[in-house]
Design a protein around this nucleic acid. Sequence first.
DNA 1: ATGGGGTGGATAGTGCTACTATCCAGTGAA
DNA 2: TTCACTGGATAGTAGCACTATCCACCCCAT
Lengths: 211, 211
Amino acid sequence: MSELSARSGVAIPTIKYYLREGLLHPGEQVAATRAEYDDSHLRRLRLIRAMVEVGRLPIAAVKKVVTAIEDESLPFHQLLGTAHYALSPQVEPEPTPEWEAAKAEVDALIADLGWQVAPGAPARNDLTQTVARMRRLGMGDAIRTYAETAERLVREVELDTIPVGGDRDAAVEALVLGTVLYGRALEALRRLAQESESARRFRGDGFSPAP
Amino acid sequence: MSELSARSGVAIPTIKYYLREGLLHPGEQVAATRAEYDDSHLRRLRLIRAMVEVGRLPIAAVKKVVTAIEDESLPFHQLLGTAHYALSPQVEPEPTPEWEAAKAEVDALIADLGWQVAPGAPARNDLTQTVARMRRLGMGDAIRTYAETAERLVREVELDTIPVGGDRDAAVEALVLGTVLYGRALEALRRLAQESESARRFRGDGFSPAP
DNA sequence: ATGGGGTGGATAGTGCTACTATCCAGTGAA
DNA sequence: TTCACTGGATAGTAGCACTATCCACCCCAT
């Protein structure tokens, strides 16, 4: 176990915790107080750390994904779907008129673009809530532009990072890391562009950094 | 105070907590056990809730922003800069060769695009870390595409939500909400596009939702 | 004029999450 | 044979964002 810890960079008590939580399958018992861990444990540990550190998923979401990986009867594309859904913030619908209006708008947009999205996809609720908030503030006329932009990026770049075959852990890891890292990069780039464009428009020195 | 709580929808103990933390300026003492709160408190409370709920900022970051708002000697554009910086995740540089390589890449990209960004902007470190992780995985050739996309969105849409004059609380609120909400919308749209495009490519039914 | 509910201020406690720490008897290499 | 290390169990910690309780006080409706 200390070897697993050393190789993965994860502390022993943390490994024990993951074992307890069922995120990591037990090692092969070789004696009452000894178990063997192999590459599958190393890979799983890498996947867990990727989801927790990079993706900032709560342990409960990680557990869902792990359960899906271990359910060998679950087809590959459903496994990827489970992982993908675990990445979205879970937003509860609110029974308000604003929500319904935003939901109608989101549904119309998806239909209009010809997107094929399951009715229960969590990103639908996430987007609905965001659109509702935007509307309340008088923003959000550019949603369609954003949708087209997202479609282009996904088509041209991101989908290539989603693997179609091979090892289940590795595939999920690639999906999670691809989705999260491109998202994070885009976010950072938006902020840099905002600072720069703000500098260009309002004065020569941008957002002056805080001291 | 119960009136402030009722109007803002924030529980009284929470208001007391914000007062303790210095996020909310005290009301005007009208007697030993009585104070008057006005619209400025209501607006400030809205701003705090926007940053906490929508922007998911930690209270410490909110405090920085509030301090900047209250420092009347701070010029308006520096106030906006402080708020903007508070929205970025704070990433510490790592002294590794990969980090340096990624940093060089990020710096070159920014220079190449002619962006005017302060050397200490937190989004630089955030992007550097992300690029480093991508490189380690063999991804990230499309960063430039993402940068150009971000620039276009910011130019055409987002900067218009950043107000240039008027009330400091309201301006910061608009900046924070604009930045966060467009980001969140784009994120949700990327996920929807991923699901749809994945359905189109791999089979007819997309990521089947988890049961 | 009086009593009941609300007030500001202080201090302590809660719930959640993601770990850490400690203890234990029991190996297994040295 | 000894001693660091193991798996397993149980308990404790840190950080965050509140939430609860207590207190003397004071306003106002009765």
